[in-house]
Simulated scan of single mutants.
Amino acid sequence: MDLFLLAIVAAGISLAMAGAWIVQRTTGMSGWIDTIWSAAVGLGGIFTAGCAEGPFSRRMTVIIIVAAWALRLAGHIGVRTKGGGEDPRYAKLMRDWGASASSRLFIFLQVQALAAFVLVFAIYLAAINDKAYPAVTDWLAVLLAATALAGETISDAQLARFRRRPEARSEVCETGLWRYSRHPNYFFEWLFWCCLPLFAVTSSPTSLLSLLAPALMYWLLVHVSGIPPLEEHMLRSRGDKFRALRKRVNAFFPGPRKSEFVSQGE
C-alpha cells in the first residue's frame, strides 16, 4: 500500500474543500460546495488509480468509470447552482449555526474531505487489485456502474422536468422513477459506490475495506446529509402533500407503491 500517495491525495482533497469554503463565503452559493466535492473525489480517484500499481486494464476501467461519475455529478450540480437558488440543506445549517456559521462550515467541509478520502481509498483498492483482468466481478462492476449512472441521470432529468412546471412549487414529484422511490437519485448514487468492492475484491482481507465506500455513502444519504434535511425541508414547504407521499412511496430503495397494495387488499 502506497501510504505516501494516499497522504498526497488526502492533503489535496482537504485543500479542495478549504477552497470550497472560500467559494461559498465569497459567493453565498452553497451549491458550489457539492460541485467542488464531486470534482475532488473524481480527480483524487483518477490520480490515485493512475499512480497505483495494478493491472493497466483494470486501472483504466476504474478511471473511466470514476471520471464519468465525477463529470456527471459535478456538471449537474454546477449547472443547477449557476441557475440560481440556494441549497435548502446548507441554508438551514447556516441559520442554525448563527454567528459561528463561518468557522463551523469550515470544520464541516473538512469532515466532508475525510468522507471523500474514504471513497478515494476504495478506488485505490480497486486499482491495486492484481488478479487477472477481466474477472466476472469486473464485468458485474461495470454493469452496476453503468446502471447506476443511467438511473441517476434519468431521475435527475425527470426531477428537472417536473420543476419546470408552474405548479412544482406546491406539488411533489411523483413521475417516472420518482413513483417508486422518494429519492431515486440518492439510491442510484449509493448503487454506484457498490461497484468498487466488486473491482477490489481479492483473497486479501484489506480488499474488504472497499466496503466502507457504499457503507459510508448509505449512512450519509439515508441518515445524515441526504434524506433527513431534504425531507424536513419538503415537510415545511409541501406539508400534507409530502406526508401523503411518504405513506405510499419508499424513502430510498425503489419498490411497489404502498397504496397499490392497500387497494388490492380492500
Results as ranks from 00 to 15, higher is better:
residue 5 L to T: 05
residue 5 L to V: 06
residue 6 L to M: 15
residue 7 A to H: 12
residue 16 A to K: 02
residue 21 W to A: 15
residue 24 Q to P: 01
residue 25 R to K: 13
residue 26 T to L: 09
residue 32 W to M: 14
residue 34 D to L: 05
residue 36 I to A: 02
residue 36 I to F: 07
residue 38 S to Y: 00
residue 42 G to Q: 08
residue 43 L to S: 06
residue 44 G to N: 00
residue 53 E to W: 11
residue 60 M to V: 14
residue 66 V to Y: 00
residue 74 A to P: 07
residue 82 K to C: 08
residue 85 G to N: 11
residue 88 P to V: 14
residue 95 R to S: 12
residue 108 F to R: 05
residue 116 A to G: 15
residue 116 A to S: 15
residue 117 F to H: 02
residue 120 V to H: 01
residue 120 V to P: 00
residue 122 A to R: 07
residue 124 Y to P: 01
residue 128 I to W: 12
residue 131 K to Y: 10
residue 132 A to D: 13
residue 139 W to G: 13
residue 141 A to G: 07
residue 141 A to C: 12
residue 142 V to E: 01
residue 142 V to L: 12
residue 142 V to G: 00
residue 143 L to N: 07
residue 144 L to G: 01
residue 145 A to I: 06
residue 145 A to N: 08
residue 148 A to N: 11
residue 149 L to A: 01
residue 155 S to C: 09
residue 160 A to D: 14
residue 167 E to M: 08
residue 172 V to Q: 07
residue 178 W to V: 05
residue 180 Y to D: 09
residue 181 S to K: 02
residue 189 E to K: 10
residue 199 F to A: 04
residue 200 A to W: 04
residue 203 S to M: 06
residue 204 S to N: 12
residue 204 S to G: 09
residue 208 L to V: 08
residue 208 L to R: 08
residue 210 S to K: 01
residue 213 A to T: 05
residue 223 H to D: 11
residue 227 I to F: 03
residue 227 I to Y: 05
residue 228 P to L: 09
residue 233 H to T: 06
residue 234 M to D: 00
residue 234 M to Q: 10
residue 235 L to D: 14
residue 240 D to S: 12
residue 242 F to W: 09
residue 243 R to M: 12
residue 244 A to C: 05
residue 244 A to R: 15
residue 261 F to E: 13
residue 262 V to G: 07
residue 262 V to I: 13
residue 264 Q to F: 13
residue 264 Q to L: 15
residue 266 E to F: 14
residue 266 E to D: 14
